Amino acid sequence: MIYLKEANVEDAEKEYQFIKDTPRDENGFQNKYYGYSYEDFMNQALPEMIKFSKGIDLPKGYVPETFYFLWDDTNIVGLFKLRHCLTDSLREGAGQIGYGIHKNYRGKGYGTKGLKLAIDKAKDVVKESEIYMSVHIDNPASLKVQLNNGAYIHHSDEKEHYTRIKIR
Rank of each mutant, 00 (worst) to 15 (best):
7 A>F: 08
126 V>I: 15
2 I>M: 14
87 T>C: 07
51 K>E: 15
131 I>W: 07
166 K>L: 12
33 Y>V: 00
58 L>H: 02
122 A>M: 03
118 A>Q: 02
127 K>M: 15
60 K>F: 13
24 R>C: 09
161 H>Q: 06
139 N>I: 01
121 K>C: 15
38 Y>H: 10
78 G>W: 03
125 V>F: 11
14 K>N: 11
3 Y>M: 10
122 A>Q: 04
82 L>K: 01
28 G>N: 07
55 G>H: 12
121 K>Y: 14
80 F>D: 05
37 S>Y: 04
70 L>C: 01
84 H>I: 05
135 V>K: 06
95 G>N: 02
92 E>F: 13
19 I>K: 05
108 K>H: 12
109 G>I: 03
84 H>G: 09
112 T>E: 13
123 K>S: 14
160 E>L: 15
98 G>D: 05
72 D>C: 12
117 L>T: 10
98 G>Y: 04
15 E>K: 00
90 L>I: 00
45 A>M: 05
27 N>Y: 14
107 G>W: 08
127 K>G: 15
29 F>I: 00
23 P>K: 03
81 K>I: 07
65 E>L: 08
6 E>K: 14
46 L>M: 01
131 I>F: 08
153 I>R: 10
42 M>C: 11
99 Y>I: 03
91 R>T: 11
119 I>A: 06
79 L>Y: 00
13 E>A: 08
80 F>H: 03
133 M>Q: 09
93 G>K: 00
63 V>G: 10
96 Q>V: 00
112 T>W: 03
127 K>W: 12
1 M>H: 13
2 I>H: 11
137 I>H: 06
88 D>F: 07
152 Y>Q: 08
59 P>W: 11
109 G>M: 04
40 D>A: 13
10 E>L: 09
109 G>P: 03
31 N>W: 13
48 E>V: 00
126 V>L: 07
88 D>H: 04
77 V>T: 04
161 H>L: 08
61 G>W: 07
63 V>Q: 13
88 D>A: 09
118 A>Y: 02
